[in-house]
């Protein structure tokens, strides 16, 4: 096996890993506060791509302005969804809420289909120079660098937010013990709202930075949601660092596996990893044992 080719697979895997990590984080953040698995998470990614297309290609806005607007729009959609659909049902059994999120996913997809049509839409890369050639075998798309850089910056910001700010600490408190947190005067509803805001924001960003590399159409969210979910489970759902590790692990193993073994088994590789984790370490890389709250 040629080392250079192996490195190329690894680089491809890193990009996927970054995206999966962002989506897994989205799952994780909502799960921590509510124990809900939000199956509409992948749709935020799709919406991120779609709004990025709308703002850059249709409105002709500057890239960074478009990026900020995209993130804002998708986050607001996240808030609206929480207010309209999740909040009224927040005291229902978990299964009901999870089914609501599945319904939401279908509704968002269909709406996107009606708004943006059924064709794949193309976005421009962030940089004019699209690729950097290192050797004959190793070629890096500049968009890959953007994706990695933005992901890492975002992770530091989130880390700072959860560990150092009052709001972030309140959020963590609410996640680990909602009753005690509410006795301390933390409004759980607001924290749930915050979790949807953050996870929609993460989804929106990942869509906006990923879609220049691929294309965007109304049904890309589903597979990203699934892979992100895999990553979240592998990393230990509810654990932010775990989600990041899970995402990168999944992305890299999947791409290297596809390259070395066969691309026909690409998805199979991802799901075999999921099954291995579910059987041998259901709590994930960093997760605590699953316990039921009494």
């Amino acid at each position: 096996m040629n080392l250079e080719i192996f490195l190329q697979y690894f680089i491809n895997g890193l990009t996927y890993g970054a995206i999966y990590a962002l989506i897994a984080l989205g799952f994780s953040v909502i799960y921590r506060t509510t124990e809900i698995i939000n199956f509409a998470q992948g749709e935020f990614v799709m919406l991120g791509g779609m709004f990025m297309f709308t703002f850059t290609k249709i409105c002709g806005l500057n890239l960074w302005l478009a990026l900020i607007l995209t993130i804002l729009t998708v986050s607001i959609i996240g808030i609206i969804i929480q207010q309209l659909f999740i909040r009224p049902a927040i005291n229902s059994p978990l299964v009901s809420i999870i089914i609501i999120t599945i319904g939401l996913s279908i509704a968002i997809q269909t709406t996107a289909m009606l708004l943006w049509g059924k064709n794949s839409l193309m976005l421009d890369h962030f940089s004019k120079i699209e690729t950097i050639k290192i050797t004959d075998e190793i070629i890096i798309a500049t968009q890959n660098i953007w994706i990695l850089a933005i992901t890492i910056i975002l992770m530091f910001i989130l880390h700072y937010f959860f560990e150092k700010t009052m709001l972030g600490k309140a959020f963590s408190a609410c996640a680990s013990n909602p009753t005690a947190a509410s006795l301390m005067g933390i409004n759980r509803n607001n924290m749930v709202l915050l979790s949807f805001f953050i996870s929609a924001l993460l989804g929106g960003i990942s869509g906006a930075i990923l879609c220049p590399l691929t294309n965007v159409n109304y049904h890309i969210g589903l597979s990203f949601g699934l892979k992100g979910f895999c990553a979240a489970i592998c990393g230990g759902i509810g654990n932010n660092i775990g989600a990041i590790l899970g995402g990168f692990m999944l992305g890299i193993v999947q791409e290297v596996g596809a390259g070395v073994i066969s691309s026909g088994y690409k998805d199979a590789i991802a799901f075999v990893i999921l099954i291995i984790f579910l059987v041998f370490k259901p709590s994930g890389i960093l997760g605590q044992k699953w316990t039921k709250r009494v």
Binding site: I5, Q8, Y9, N12, G13, Y16, I19, E137, A141, L210, L213, T214, I220, F224, E255, A258, G259, S263, K266
Partner: peptide, 9 residues
Amino acid sequence: PDVNTQITK
């Protein structure tokens, strides 16, 4: 989302 790995191969 992309087929870079396949093309590399």
